[in-house]
Design a protein around this nucleic acid. Structure first.
Lengths: 126, 126, 126, 126
DNA sequence: GTGGTCTAGACCACC
DNA sequence: GTGGTCTAGACCACT
């Protein structure tokens, strides 16, 4: 059973969900450098989705430098994962930056945001 | 010349951009209760897009309780805009909360986020 | 000040509202046979709407045999109003018939409708 | 062949007829939770109308919480249809209440309405 | 003039 | 194949 999970009813494209899921696993050290990804057919079976969708996700992972594929052997996490972590964090920071700019636009002030962050730290939003 | 602006090159649907733009104008008090929106055809001309796209945006605004239309007379901002402002801010705060949770998940610490907010305040991200 | 009233924000066409309003006044005996209707311009002024709209309503009243116009003198309720009352009641009964058919379609039973009618009689729905 | 039907000659917008038709099918249990709706193109072909009109109807169903769509997969009835049934019945009862109030206003008495209901039960009005 | 509906036909991303 | 968006152009009722 794979650790990769998706939400079939989400509007987010399934292949993006897979990419995001793999990134998160790598980043948390659950998936290690050079570890093989589940085969396209296996994962397609487990998630009950079309193999083409898995294929697209793996291609995207390759394009982003997170995985590589050895024809006939399968797909693997790259050997060097340090940069993945950085990229992932930067991606999130970029999104937060854009959110916060919109918040200032909308008349939300810094104190409200600080309060929000505190409440998340304390787990009040779980 | 209308205050409603769009970015034709964005991947975000044009009609959504229009909805967002109007929301922002209402929320900043630039558009007042019961003030008429530009006519469908006028705005279509100004933004150089199809009238049907404007129509779709205005329908969505009506659905969200932000505007109402009087066929044959025009479209107008609703009389009561206080709740719109609140809803809009809450929507943004919810997005920030979700992204910040992801950030903590990804090992980003509070200091980094605080630094980010400061840099936005100073306009370094515009 | 005329007894004819409209709701400018309703989706029902204003001219239909005027027609309906006049019918109701006639039917209740508030407007008598051969009594003059307010002049187009006066009523337009009072209701703060376009004279063309009044004109259209009066034409419709004429078409339905409820009013007649004497060029240069104005519009008047017809001399014989008995049939108007019947027509008006039949119109309402037709609408109720259509509603009730839909209700049966939707699995609502006769008892529920009877209960509804009782509650209206007792003014619980005012 | 789909169960969704429209009357092309009616003045009621086609997309509204489709919405109403689907509601009725759901409410009668003919369409089940998570059952797929006909595809936009298929239904457009069967009803001989433009796909955009179907699209508009399906969007409205989604807005009303009756259907959901998975881009690339199709449109489906929501998983929880109990509330739809209630809402639909309440909507009809509200209309009946309003019309019956108008009837009493117009001097129609309860016996006439009861007679009307009986005649509908016996199918004399079909 | 206004908004509302509809058609015809195109392109896109996703599965 | 699917739904989602957009364009171009038409017709309608209403003001």
């Amino acid at each position: 059973m794979s650790l990769i999970t998706i939400d079939i009813k989400s509007r987010q494209p399934i292949y993006e969900q897979i990419v995001y899921s793999v990134k998160k696993l790598v980043m948390r050290g659950i998936m290690q450098p050079d570890e093989p990804l589940p085969s396209v057919r296996t994962l397609a079976g487990e998630l009950a989705i079309n193999p083409n969708t898995i294929q697209k996700a793996y291609s995207e992972l390759e394009r982003q430098g997170i995985a590589y594929s050895l024809p006939g052997k399968g797909s693997f996490i790259v050997s060097e994962t340090r940069k993945i972590e950085e990229d992932f964090q930067n991606e999130i920071l970029r999104e937060i930056a854009s959110n916060i700019k919109r918040a200032f636009d909308a008349g939300i002030n810094e104190a409200q945001i600080a309060e929000l962050i505190d409440s998340i730290k304390e787990g009040r939003h779980d």
